[in-house]
Amino acid sequence: MDVVSDAISAVRVGSPSSDRLSVDGDWHVRLPPYEGAGFHVVLRGTCRLLRDGDGAAVTLGPGDVVLLPHGSGHALMSAGDGCEVELLCGKYRLDRSRTHPLMAELPQVVHLPHRVGEHPELRAAIDLLARELDEQRPGGGLALPSLLDLLDLLLVYLVRAWMSRAHTGAWPAVLSDPVTTAALRALHADPAAPWTAEGLAAAAGVSRATLARRFTALVGRPPMAYLTWWRLTLAAARLRASDVPLATVARETGYGSPYALSHAFSREFGVTPGRYRALAAPPLPDARSGPAPDARFRDALPAPAPAVTSPSPG
């Protein structure tokens, strides 16, 4: 897997959910803070998004996508024109206890305005998801398992799209540096391998000193320290999501024995792997077994009412 995909999969828990919604008139709804990430796609019409604590609203037009990677509370409201608005809304549940620095660096709101020809993979995924969530289409129930996989892919595309547009931040710079990127790809491709500083430098095609200097300056920690952190992050994710034996987790994350993993894990997390697993919150019920959690969004919409007074943009 690549670094972006790994950064997401390490913190994602449960199954994502999405819903296709149509509203008109003067409407507004507030969505409370959420332990995860949410997104909205405007399929038709224009609306506004106002994040809790902000003084300015973001105007969203047809084809616009907005990602709230830190689960910020926010309000969606009509643009005041009374026209019908159709939205594709979704959520991902994330475990914030071990957030990859790439994910932590994302801004509170990522607005991706629609531009023809930009981010074709993202657009294709959105179009397919929007069509299949139309409840009138035959075979929609059978398509649901594939839609859950598509939702995971959509989050990857959204993060990639932000990184391609970001002009500041450490991780866009990290992944544009060929030496650091080569080392990260090697580590993420096989974190359980018996890596050494020399072996990693060889994989990146530079000297050990050069790799250490460039990697540390960009990532914020030396290569081998990052490897230890990533191995333990993977171990935590495995413990949280499964009941496989500790020996299996140790083998999968590059530790020679359960004792070695337990010692490193306890030093990093302050609890033993077994205790961590016991304390880990269970994932949300699988979306295949019931209605999507976002269905409550539709219920929260008030009946048409006088125009909502809200802070004006800018």
Rank of each mutant, 00 (worst) to 15 (best):
G73P: 00
T309A: 13
V159K: 00
G140Y: 03
T248Q: 12
A7K: 05
T272P: 04
H114V: 08
G25E: 05
S164I: 14
G254N: 01
V219Y: 00
P311R: 07
L102C: 05
L301T: 10
M103F: 15
D26W: 13
G141M: 04
E198A: 12
M103E: 05
G36V: 01
A161W: 06
I126V: 15
L31A: 00
D149L: 15
L68D: 01
S310W: 12
L279Q: 15
R213C: 11
I8W: 05
P311Y: 07
A79N: 02
D81M: 06
V271A: 14
C47I: 06
A300D: 11
L232R: 02
S289I: 12
D95Y: 04
D24C: 15
D64A: 06
L60Q: 08
A124L: 12
P172M: 07
E84W: 06
L284C: 09
R214H: 12
A250L: 07
G55R: 10
G141Y: 03
L128H: 15
C89R: 14
V156P: 01
K91P: 01
A237V: 13
G117F: 13
G139D: 02
A235F: 02
G254R: 03
E268N: 11
E35G: 10
L187N: 03
A173N: 03
S164C: 12
P313R: 04
L187Y: 05
V156Y: 14
C89Y: 10
D134T: 09
R267I: 05
L239F: 02
G314S: 15
A278L: 14
A292Q: 04
A170H: 04
A183H: 03
A287G: 08
M1N: 10
P107M: 11
R30Q: 10
P101G: 08
P245F: 09
L148R: 11
S257F: 13
S207K: 13
R115T: 08
A260H: 12
R240V: 04
V58C: 07
L49E: 09
L187C: 06
R30W: 10
A303F: 11
L148C: 11
A183Y: 02
I126M: 09
S146F: 15
L187F: 13
V110C: 02
S266F: 06
T228V: 05
L142P: 02
Y226R: 08
L50N: 00
P293T: 04
V206E: 05
P178Y: 15
P69I: 06
A235E: 00
F39C: 01
A287M: 10
A183T: 05
P16K: 08
A280H: 10
V4E: 08
S257D: 12
A237K: 11
L261K: 03
A192P: 09
V13I: 12
S289A: 09
R137W: 14
P113T: 13
L133K: 03
G25R: 05
A183Q: 04
P33E: 06
V65Q: 00
L60K: 06
D134L: 12
Y226V: 04
S72F: 05
L175R: 13
P178R: 10
S176F: 14
Y92H: 14
L218G: 04
A10E: 10
G314F: 14
L129N: 04
G314Y: 07
A193G: 02
P16H: 02
I8H: 01
G61T: 10
T181V: 11
A292R: 03
R213A: 15
L122Y: 02
G274W: 13
